[in-house]
Design a protein around this nucleic acid. Structure first.
Lengths: 337, 337
DNA sequence: TTGAAAGCGCTAACAG
DNA sequence: CTGTTAGCGCTTTCAA
């Protein structure tokens, strides 16, 4: 131990073979005499050998890690307590571990941070990037593309760019919510939208409004939120001010829906009796809320896994044309609507 | 680009100097003629050079990454949606980025996964490990120690081991809760403990009971939970069954406290009028709960940062003796008690 | 099937 | 202050 970790050389010496042979058995290459394999394996055991990753990476040009970057967040690091990002992380980690790949967590919430991410990838510290953007104007995807870094996005980028991504059909999700509320006989329906500079928010709103229009409601009272509890509460207050007789609201995520429920209750309204509330995501707050939230489920973990899969594939065979995978949302009916 | 990324050699050629000189300016070493520095910098700019991390690591024996491992969790990957782990992650990421170090996320929820973590570190894929264990019997700390991997723990390990760790004074936290409840005139006080195979749970409970005893309450109705909302709800039901007249409960984390509030309300009890509830952690659910939770705050982000700091220090100067840093908890009074 | 040898790109003595 | 020169530990032709 005092002389440093054992190397291929050490193992080779003990086994009485060449470095090349040891390397072959370590990497499971065929064409090695079974008997020698045995000898080598013993030598490995005996020396406690473990291949040096840096040395291997230097020649293979692969690190076995990918960057998982949360980009564009002005929110700093409380993104990690956002249930949505937690689910993305869970999905990514779960999938990658099956392939012996590990995610390096990075926050790209400033221009400098973005440059660091690009540098990190250019240095070959990771083989590719998994990108979750929170703003449509996020410049990172383009920079990654320009740097020739393999990257896959969670959600359609603000401006078209030849990069693969996974997404959910947000418009369909909005429609699901509208249909449910109208079918329940609600007639005074408003919505708390997500930040409108995010494509997902725009789409959820568009889908919701379209469906409402088809149901005979040309105008839908709307308040914009920022996907946080605070912004959701404020939006609910505004909605209530504009439309005191409101009897249903569709919020663009569960956090805002939960906040809306609190505000409504504080105003003496019962949920769902007086006002029905539908959320979006189906993450932890939907269940923690009282009443539990009826919500549009987004299969975040599956989507995150698909995103990771896409990246691994593009690492396997580079030069493929970008692909997109769109998931279907699903209405989960609980007590709030 | 088609010929691979530019190397030190390329830059040296363009600048008309030796590789060594380029290396020196890249690494900010002193003793380089300012004029030459300029020339080299231009050459770097011109070639778009970016140092190859694998090559560098091979010689420096440093990767600039550390493993952030969540260990012992039987819970699989939903740990990522646990607000507690989110805060740990946030604290770690925030601190490490200041030092140009990045965390690799790993889950060590099975024996195989633990072996993979050890292998990962032994291969030099990361310079050290930041370990958050969920069980006191977690064998990972010992294995890491045996493998000679620099590691720092979040929370005191189940069995003493010469490894640094950060922790909060759980007993003091328990005392804070007891004192507050008693001072508020509550007389029928119970507690929902965390899983008792976790030192933190034991300590919170011990501190709580001690203080209660000092206040003249030798027996405290106790129900064990598992730090999850479900287990908290079940524990509350048991407590209610054993002690229908209960007028206060201290839960070992906010998730369980929130669940307790729901159960109490479902039983027609008002919080805090009929039953006061105190949580532990002061994480998101404390604020999302109605009424908002009075809780014992654990400065998780600061603790996580301190843990990362400890690791970086031990990487800087190896062979130091292990250290521990204990934080003081703080009572945050809100509406629930 | 196995071994010899040539690097991968970089840092760090060691000279000069 | 700068260049030369050894490797770091591994994979991978290329011969044998």
């Amino acid at each position: 131990m005092s002389k440093g970790a054992p190397t291929l050389e050490d193992v080779a010496r003990v086994a009485g073979v060449s470095r090349a042979t040891v390397s072959r058995v370590v990497n499971g290459t065929r064409n090695v005499d079974p008997q020698l394999q045995e000898t080598v394996r013993n030598a490995i055991e005996q020396t406690g050998y473990s291949p040096n990753r840096a040395a291997r990476s230097l020649v293979t040009r692969r690190t076995g890690t990918v960057a998982l970057v949360i980009s564009g967040a002005g929110g700093g690091s409380d993104v990690f307590t956002d249930p949505f990002f937690g689910r993305v992380t869970a999905g990514v980690v779960d999938f990658l571990r099956l392939h012996g790949v590990h995610p390096v967590l990075m926050l790209a919430d400033s221009d400098q941070a973005r440059s660091e991410v690009v540098e990190f990838l250019r240095q070959g510290s990771a083989d590719g990037a998994l990108l979750v953007s929170t703003h449509s104007a996020d410049p990172l995807p383009a920079r990654l593309l320009a740097a020739g870094v393999p990257a896959v996005l969670y959600a359609r980028p603000g401006t078209p760019i030849p990069l693969s991504y996974v997404d959910v059909d947000h418009q369909a999700g909005g429609r699901l919510a509208a249909d449910h509320l109208v079918a329940a006989g609600r007639a005074n329906i408003g919505t708390i939208a997500g930040p409108l500079d995010v494509p997902a928010s725009q789409d959820r709103l568009a889908g919701f409004r379209d469906a409402m229009a088809r149901h005979g409601f040309p105008y839908v009272p709307t308040a914009e939120g920022g996907f946080t509890a605070e912004s959701g509460a404020a939006a609910m207050e505004r909605l209530l001010a504009e439309c005191p007789g409101i009897d249903a609201v569709f919020a663009a995520n569960d956090l805002m829906a939960q906040a809306a429920v609190f505000v409504l209750q504080a105003h003496g309204k019962r949920v769902p009796e007086d006002v029905a509330v539908v959320g979006f995501d189906d993450s932890a707050p939907a269940l923690a809320c009282r009443p539990q939230l009826t919500t549009v489920r987004q299969p975040v973990e599956d989507m995150a896994a698909a995103m990771a899969d896409l990246l691994l594939e593009s690492l396997e065979k580079p030069g493929q044309r970008p692909r997109s995978i769109i998931f279907e949302p699903e209405l989960v009916v609980r007590a709030s609507a």
